[in-house]
Amino acid sequence: MVSLPRLKARREPGERPAPALTRRRPPARRRRFTSTQVWIWFFLTPTVVLYGLYTVYPIIASYWFSFVEWNGFEAEKTWVGLRNYQDVLADPQFWNSFTVTALFTVVAVPVKVIFSLLVALLLNSPKMPLRSLFRTAFFLPVVTTTAIVGVVMQFVFDPTDGPVNQLLLTLGLVDEGINFLGDSSTSLWTVVGVYVWKWFGVTLIYWLAALQTIPDDVYQAAALDGAGPWSMLRHITMPLLKPFTVIISLLTLESTLKVFDLVLTMTNGGPFYSTEVVEIYIYRWSFAATTPQLGFASAAAVIFGMFVCLLGLLQLAGIRAARKAGGLA
């Protein structure tokens, strides 16, 4: 949920505030002008201070911290130049966490985007019975606390008494319970599954919003021309959804890079680092280690941050391209 405000903001950068500027008429009198200026900065102060301390400063400081050796928040910092970067890049566990994050994303994004599209297509039809009830059901996990859900899932996937294994045993599909979270060959996929389950509703809502941009009369006209549901889907819905596909995929992609809450509470990165995503790697070196390596962890954070930033720029380019395509269609 932490990622939401960022997601929502994506539509904004394209809008320009300029028109408001030109409409503003210069204040009539000099004295009023200065008192207004004071009020303006008074209004901006809370944002400038809070945002400066907790968003801008941390971004700059992580670069500085990545060049020092620093073993705990109370400890002294010593300048070590690029050594932290060398150490991070030489650490196989960093690359392991990078791979885990990549695998997570590569599997979770398409599964989520495709399946939610299928469900959205069905739920968008007025002929679908109970559609709003279903929408509520799919959306329910989205509003719940990820960390709580993660803990509950530990029990749901328990190898002996968890309901999932109980069901598999009752149906005779397995002879003994599967250790979903305790076995490094299934743990990552279980977490991915829960992740898809948890956030499926968001992508579904995106698709439903996209589908609602297609006016009803387009379908009515097609129906008059004798088009069946299948050809409507192929020749109307799909082409009109195309520009949204890029945006929705990129929004989904970005959100899979923030899975700290779920992974920490479900598996804590284990077993044998099989679910250790980059966020957990950073957390482990900064808070969970006996001697925290804060400089080293900062270097890992910077490297991964740059990677995410690149994805962000890609996203911007993607949305621009999608808008263009949408405008032409």
Binding site: S3, A61, F65, E279, S298, G305, G312
Partner: peptide
């Protein structure tokens, strides 16, 4: 600009400050 910088990876400076 900060919209495009991942804030989830800045926990160390947040704790420090």
């Amino acid at each position: 600009a900060t919209l495009f910088v991942p804030t989830g990876y800045t926990i160390i400076p947040v704790v420090e400050i």
